[in-house]
Simulated assay, not measured.
Amino acid sequence: MMLFCDISLAARIERAETRLIADSSDASRARRGDTLGFALPYAGGVASFAEPDSPLNKVAGLGFEGVPSPADVDRVERAYAACGAPIQVELSTLADPAVGDLLTGRGYRLVSFENVLGRTLDGFQGEPPPPGVQVRRSGDEEFGPWVDLVVDAFGHADNQGVPSHEDFPRAVVENAIRDMAATGAWRLLALRDGAFAGGASMRVTDGIAQLTGAATAPEHRRRGVQSALLSARLAAAASAGCDLAVVTTQPGSKSQQNAHRQGFSLLYTRAVLVRTA
C-alpha cells in the first residue's frame, strides 16, 4: 500500500533528520578534538557546519515550528560567513511556505531537489538475497575496510536520474561517513561470492529507520547487491520495533527505483536553496 504523508508525518521525519545532522556535526568536532564549526538550533531545525566542503554543512528541518525570526536568520548567516561557507537549506515541500518566501527574499537560490521516500514496516518480510550474496552486520574490526568500500563506491555514482549538484573530495566524504557512523548508525556489509561487494548504514530515531547511505562496488553492480542491502536493513529495522523507514534519493535515480521495488512511496521533495558565501 502506498504511504500518504501529511504535515505531521513530514515534521516527524524532519525532526529525525535534524537530530542526525546535529549529532554527525558534533561527531566531526569530537573526531578532530576541536571546537571549529557549529550545530546551531534554528527554528526547530539545525544549521550545521562540520568542516570545509562537508556534506554535513546544511540547514535541515526548517518550516515545522514557525518561521525563523530576522535575528535567527542573521545569526545563522553570520556563523556561515565566519567560516567562509555557502548556506545550503534543504526545505521540505510540506514546510511552511513562508520560509521559502523569506529565504528567496534574502538571496537564496534554488539549485536542486531531493526526494524523501518512506514505507511502513508493519509485517515486513524481506526477500532472501540472490545466490552468492550475503548481507550481515559489519563488526568493529571491519570498520576501516567498510569505510573504504563505501567511499570508493560513492566515487562511482550511478548515472541514472538527475545528477547531484554536489561533488565532494574523497577525504571529506570519508570523514562524513565516519562521523555519521559515530552517531550510532548500524553498519551492514554485503559480500558476493565471498568478496566485499557493498556497504550500507542505518540509524534508528524515535521509531524511524533512516537509511543513511548504501554503495555497491562497480564490479558488483547489477547483481542484486543494492536491493539485498536495502531488504536487510528493513528487516533489521522491523525487528528493532521501527514503524517507518525513510530514504533520501536523487530524483529518478537507480536508488529511487530500487526503493520503489521494496515498497517505498514518494512522501515529499526537498528544495535545495543555496546562498553563496
Rank of each mutant, 00 (worst) to 15 (best):
M2R: 14
M2Y: 04
A10L: 04
T18N: 01
L20D: 06
A27G: 02
A27M: 08
A30R: 14
R31Y: 07
A47K: 06
N57Q: 09
N57E: 02
V67T: 11
P68V: 02
V73R: 14
V76Q: 08
R78W: 02
A82N: 13
I87H: 02
Q88C: 11
A98K: 13
G100H: 07
G100K: 04
L102D: 15
L103C: 07
T104E: 15
Y108E: 03
L110I: 03
S112L: 00
E114K: 14
G118F: 01
P128I: 09
Q134G: 03
V135F: 05
W146P: 05
L149A: 08
D158L: 11
E166H: 15
E166F: 15
D167E: 05
P169N: 10
V172Q: 09
A176W: 10
A182N: 10
W186T: 14
A197E: 13
A200V: 02
A200L: 12
R203D: 09
T205L: 13
A217G: 04
L229H: 01
R233M: 03
D243L: 10
L244M: 01
Q250W: 06
Q262R: 05
G263F: 06
F264N: 07
L266F: 11
T269M: 11
A271K: 08
V274M: 14
T276K: 04
